[in-house]
């Protein structure tokens, strides 16, 4: 089995995987980082979004071997010293989550939105940028508010 080595949330990790192992399976099953979820199998729902080399990707649509040598950030890697990242805090403050299942992917996507669009986000931009993340609980209203508030907080 091929060996993979990558840096996940600042930690060097390695392992042997079947080539058919998806990045999300490696994260969830080998590393037990179960914050990243699987909600579909067609690359539509975005519950599995993580950052690879600083960019959002759907970890269900990337082989673990493809991430060999990469820096990977998951939802577990955002909080520092026990305090939540401003985007995580914004989701809490704005009730941007209900069942919590889509939430890690939403937060990781939100950070990618801020990285590309800055801290002052209008509603239309956020809604368009969330195209690849499906939520059944919130009706998106409070997710949009959360992303806007989180973006603003990140700029302060």
């Amino acid at each position: 089995m091929p060996a993979v080595a990558m840096n996940v949330n600042g930690n060097a990790v390695s392992g042997e995987v079947e080539p058919r192992t998806l990045l999300v399976q490696f994260l969830r099953e080998s590393l037990r980082l179960t914050g990243t979820h699987v909600g579909c199998d067609t690359s539509q729902c975005g519950a599995c979004v993580v950052h690879v080399n600083g960019k959002s990707v759907k970890s269900c649509t990337m082989l673990a071997v493809m991430a060999d040598g990469c820096d990977v950030t998951t939802i577990e890697g955002l909080a520092t010293d026990g305090s939540m990242h401003p985007m995580q805090q914004a989701f809490m403050d704005n009730h941007g989550l209900q069942c919590g299942f889509c939430t890690p992917g939403m937060v990781m996507t939100a950070l990618d939105i801020v990285n590309r669009n800055g801290n002052d986000l209008n509603e239309a931009t956020v809604r368009k940028e969330l195209e690849g993340n499906i939520c059944r609980c919130t009706g998106y209203h409070n997710i949009v508010k959360s992303v806007q508030a989180g973006a603003k907080a990140m700029g302060e």
Binding site: S43, G46, V49, V52, K55, S56, V57, K58, T61, M62, T109, D112, I113, R116, E129, E131, G132, N133
Partner: peptide
């Protein structure tokens, strides 16, 4: 095309 995460790959 697709969505932001898809466009990154």
């Amino acid at each position: 095309i697709g969505d932001p995460a898809v466009r990154n790959r």
